[in-house]
């Protein structure tokens, strides 16, 4: 990766971390945009166990919340797992400020969820939009490794925000970039890219779509007429991530499923996206409150720091 990065891998591989020790060291960080950043966490057992489609629950500090993050990549030799974080709420914005190489995460539990069933389709389209670009990568790689023809369709707002293009080109037979402003690839949404891919490859047997719910729904609608199996990866609000609270329940077909233990991958043609979207907005008020409280504390800390710096230097030190 060429973006600005600091790397401590060689140093931390000698520290021999164990499963479950307090603190999971961050060994690399890359900022993709002003809101999105990639963390590589040293956790050899997790890197060994992780499969495409799984996620982790991260707790950045002891008072923090448990948030689900999809595993965007894993390196079994280096013993690292890669997480992509979009700074949108209190926790993720705080992580953007505090998570640097040399610090560690308070808790990382996983790999959670069922690994993606890779199926036997000869040709697979992997669609990633927004935060879904990174998590669709291990799926594309896994399909490539089992010998399928893989077409990648990635959506970004503009050319400056494109990331992991090289990584995707390595595992995709064809890569279709889509940007909102046409500054890279085709001018359009990922659904336009998906339709293009379906035209060029009539034998597409499976579509994997990961991204915001509205995007996954649009992809599922795009394939519904032809009935091509479409897998979506759901990311509802979770607490424990181990099947205990039921907060992540989603309606799939006639039943209620828990994304954390029954998913996170489900048949996109059967998911009730309206229900998913409504449940995702449940804590909007509390989230705003948390963000306001945090920003207030940050300002107070800044003021306090400024006050301290104005104090005369103690003598006799």
């Amino acid at each position: 990766m060429q973006s600005s990065s600091d790397d401590l891998r060689s140093a931390s591989t000698t520290s021999a971390p164990r499963a479950g020790v307090t603190g999971f060291p961050i060994v690399a960080r890359h900022d993709i945009s002003d809101a999105t950043f990639i963390l590589e966490v040293h956790h050899p057992l997790m890197a060994r166990a992780a499969r495409a489609g799984q996620f982790v629950i991260v707790m950045s500090h002891p008072e923090g919340e448990r948030i689900p993050l999809t595993i965007a990549d894993f390196d079994r030799e280096l013993g690292t797992v890669t997480l992509v974080v979009q700074a949108v709420g209190k926790t993720t914005r705080e992580m953007q400020q505090t998570c640097h190489v040399g610090t560690s995460l308070h808790g990382v539990a996983g790999p959670l969820g069922q690994p993606s069933p890779l199926g036997t389709a000869r040709t697979v389209v992997c669609v990633g939009g927004g935060l879904g670009v990174a998590p669709v990568y291990p799926q594309a790689r896994a399909h490539k490794e089992r010998g399928a023809t893989v077409i990648g369709v990635l959506g970004f707002r503009s050319a400056e925000l494109v990331f992991w293009e090289d990584k995707f080109r390595e595992v995709c037979d064809e890569l279709i970039l889509c940007t909102d402003d046409g500054s890279a690839g085709i001018h359009g949404l990922v659904t336009d890219g998906l339709e293009l891919a379906m035209e060029r490859y009539p034998d597409v047997g499976e579509v994997v779509a990961i991204g915001p719910p509205v995007m996954m729904q649009a992809c599922a609608e795009a394939t519904r007429p032809t009935g091509v199996h479409t897998v979506v990866s759901l990311n509802p609000i979770m607490v424990d991530g181990t099947g205990m609270c039921g907060g992540c329940r989603v309606r799939v077909g006639d039943g209620v499923r828990f994304a954390c233990v029954d998913g996170p991958d489900f048949d996109g043609h059967k998911v009730d996206f309206a229900d998913l979207r409504s449940r995702l907005t449940r804590y909007r008020g509390e989230e705003a409150q948390a963000l306001a409280h945090w920003e207030h504390t940050c300002r107070r800390a800044e003021v306090a720091a400024a006050d301290t710096s104005e104090l005369p230097t103690p003598t006799g030190a």
Binding site: G64, T91, C245, G246, R279
Partner: peptide, 30 residues
């Protein structure tokens, strides 16, 4: 049963006990 405001006792108790949501926003879990 999936409307906003319907939740399992497990979720309510986990938020309140394990995650200390009763001290929100000092603790992050609402």
């Amino acid at each position: 049963d999936s409307l906003g405001g319907v939740l399992s006792a497990n979720e309510l108790l986990t938020r309140a006990n394990l995650m200390q949501a009763r001290d929100f926003p000092v603790y992050d879990t609402p």
